[in-house]
Design a protein around this nucleic acid. Structure first.
Lengths: 294, 294
DNA sequence: ATAATAGTGTCTGTCAGACAATATCGT
DNA sequence: ACGATATTGTCTGACAGACACTATTAT
């Protein structure tokens, strides 16, 4: 019995949700894949690119800007279910690794109304994906993501780099300049985003911030979890795996050291690559019984 | 102009939020401090305990159970602002480190209505805090948190431990048994919570899950960020700092090694402890110009 | 002297970074 | 033979874990 002499059952029966204003809750998805860019010289291995799925907005606000796919969380589905549903709706894939990133809840994120958005990271290899434009989108495209360091000041705890989001196929090039500063009183770096106008194309809402947040997570997690394997097919070469790591970490690795490191995480198969114009490579699989990663 | 021939300004003017059902959004706060438990023998150093603030629920549901402090996110405030406001309301502190943990959004979290909750970690040292019971609470208390390993099976990727939440002062003892399993197809361990009834007292909602999530984050982050310093006053001894680390990590550390490790992160002052019944210790401060942590 | 804590030196094994050397395929 | 990639061996320095030893205070 509570102070109104109601049992829990009675209380829930008479409970009224109330009609004060509630924010809308949405999910935004960072759907990353790795794209193999083939060379004309078949003896050379394809170059890998980190790509992100963006949709072109059909209506206001941010009309004609590129936004993360996503949508509202329905009243009768969990946040994870909403992500699952949206992934299936927009890309027709079901079996994709995803994880929650961060929930963005600033008041002025969306000029229409108050929107709180949980961002999610989704990773897969490029096969079987057919992204299609939904109601709210006039176009869908995979964008290559690249960061280029401009300046690194160790003493100052300051880091400046270009953030390049482009689609060669569509002829779109979007550039932001990002300045990261770690101040004395907080160890979470402060990030400042500046749009560099090279064309009319832009990233909608605060999505550039979310994209960068996702890249940071990816970079951290690849060091101590096996997320990298989500980007690759079941069988892959060690050079392919290494290139995934190099792409996410943004630096080159030494082959011998990399192989020593991931030895316990992969299993060698009898199969090799064929007709590649050079020494064939053994194919490996992910070792599901790895103890610790690295 | 969009498909209805409206400019962005016109669009926003006529935009209607719509009246479909929206979930409620709340924040739940994990407010951790470290408590110094003094010994009668003044020559012995106080033992440190990790403590968490919980409130006793006044009404249904989970009446008389212990819950995390928190509340609704208002329509005109950011999630962080809501946390800031709640922290001030419930504990009257303003200058506290906090960070977002995870947003829990299962459909059946709260029997009253659909509630999506962002959990936050808040850390401070115990001074100047006066928690008070709010409207929805009949009591507030600091609970000591302890984990005791029962079983660790390396091959099986299985870990079992007791999760003990108690207040000696109030004579309350709450125990859960947690089983963590890492299965082949996912590297995020699956956690199973079992309430061990030693008394009538319980943890409300899914808050035991949130508490455990926060402890995991704390354990991870203490290794590569200076969060530990939030638990200590401005000046502290290295033994105190080490005990904070031991508490969070759940294992003893070797003094010489610990000191070598944190050398660059602290600054030695001229001051020492006084009248402690043994050799006095130098007092140290956090070095704000640390380059990397460990 | 003893209890209790503070503070330092050093041995050892592990591991990451760097680099070198050898192997195998197609043209 | 050459171009391209595959695969393995090993030297070195940094660093974490373990342990031992010395120092200083109050009772």
């Amino acid at each position: 019995m509570d102070q109104n002499h109601l049992s829990e059952e009675e209380f829930l029966k008479q409970y009224n949700v109330g009609d004060y204003e509630r924010p809308s809750v949405t999910v935004d998805m960072l759907f990353f894949t790795i794209f193999n860019k083939e060379y004309e010289d078949i003896r050379k291995l394809p170059e890998k690119e980190l790509q992100l799925l963006l949709i072109k907005r059909n209506g206001h606000p941010y009309k004609d800007s590129w936004a993360l796919p996503g949508g509202f969380v329905n009243i009768d589905e969990s946040i994870d279910d909403a992500v699952y549903r949206e992934l299936k709706e927009e890309t027709n894939v079901e079996d994709v690794y995803f994880e929650q990133l961060y929930t963005f809840g600033d008041v002025d994120r969306d000029p229409r109304t108050r929107v709180i958005s949980s961002s999610y990271l989704a990773l897969t290899n490029r096969e079987n994906i057919n992204a299609k434009a939904g109601d709210d989108a006039s176009d869908v495209a995979w964008f290559t993501i690249k960061k280029t360091d401009i300046e690194m000041n160790e003493e100052d705890h300051k880091k400046t780099y270009y953030f390049n989001i482009y689609s060669q196929e569509k002829g779109i090039d979007i550039i932001y300049k990002i300045i990261e500063k770690t101040t004395y009183d907080q160890y979470v770096p402060n990030k400042q985003y500046e749009f560099i106008p090279v064309s009319e194309e832009k990233i909608a809402f605060d999505h550039i911030k979310i994209i960068n947040y996702g890249l940071d997570r990816l970079k951290n997690k690849i060091e101590y979890t096996p997320i990298a394997f989500n980007f690759l097919p079941e069988y892959f070469t060690l050079t392919e795996l290494q290139k995934v790591y190099e792409l996410i970490l943004g630096k080159e690795l030494l082959k011998a050291n990399f192989r020593r490191k991931i030895k316990q995480v992969v299993v060698k198969t009898e199969e090799t690559t064929h007709e590649v114009g050079h020494r064939p490579s053994s194919l490996y699989t992910f070792n599901k019984n790895y103890q610790t990663l690295f």
